[in-house]
Design a protein around this nucleic acid. Structure first.
Length: 162
DNA sequence: GCCAACGTTGGC
DNA sequence: GCCAACGTTGGC
């Protein structure tokens, strides 16, 4: 059995929020629209069914990890790339040899409270996370098991949201 | 709204 | 293959 990996997925909640994922039928969504080669390569080469996902809200108040999800389908062609007029249309992506890929994720655990970027930056244990580093913009980032465990512990503090 | 930092594009 | 210009990201 391969080692489970951990990831942080960024999403702007005005575009797609963790609540949106929770509200999906089967709580599952296609993670389409990735148009960055480094992120594409993470999905293609490293992401496996069962991997853990921290769902992070960017450009939000607050910017924070909202909960967790699980990868339930490994990389497959992102069909939005060849839909003219779609937001992420890319005429250079050939359906016979797709440039862009997506995965499916399943909402897992909603945190009892958001774990904010502000507190991540203040937490000495979490200084290795890419999300605290200036200028790191990729929308999917690898997360260490130690950082994953720490974020989960913080998110599970306090009373559950009703 | 600002702007630093980054990825991509395209002229050469 | 270099690199300046450009567009985008995303925290603040």
């Amino acid at each position: 059995m391969a080692e489970r990996r951990y990831w942080l997925f960024k999403s702007e909640p005005t575009n797609y929020s963790f609540q949106d994922l929770l509200g999906e039928e089967d709580r599952t969504a296609e993670w389409d629209g990735v148009r960055n080669y480094q992120v594409r390569n993470f999905m293609r080469d490293e992401m496996k069914v069962g991997d853990g996902v921290l769902f992070y809200h960017s450009s939000a108040k607050p910017t924070a990890v909202m909960g967790t999800a699980t990868v339930v389908k490994e990389a497959y062609p992102d069909s939005t790339a060849w839909e003219p007029g779609a937001k992420y249309y890319d005429p250079k992506s050939n359906p016979d040899d797709p440039t862009w890929l997506m995965v499916d994720i399943l909402a897992d655990q909603e945190f009892n409270r958001p774990v904010t970027l502000q507190e991540i930056k203040k937490n000495p244990k979490l200084q290795g996370m890419m999300v605290v580093k200036r200028g790191v913009r990729i929308s999917i980032q690898p997360v260490s098991k130690e950082d994953w465990d720490e974020i989960i512990a913080l998110g599970m503090e306090g009373q559950p949201n009703s």
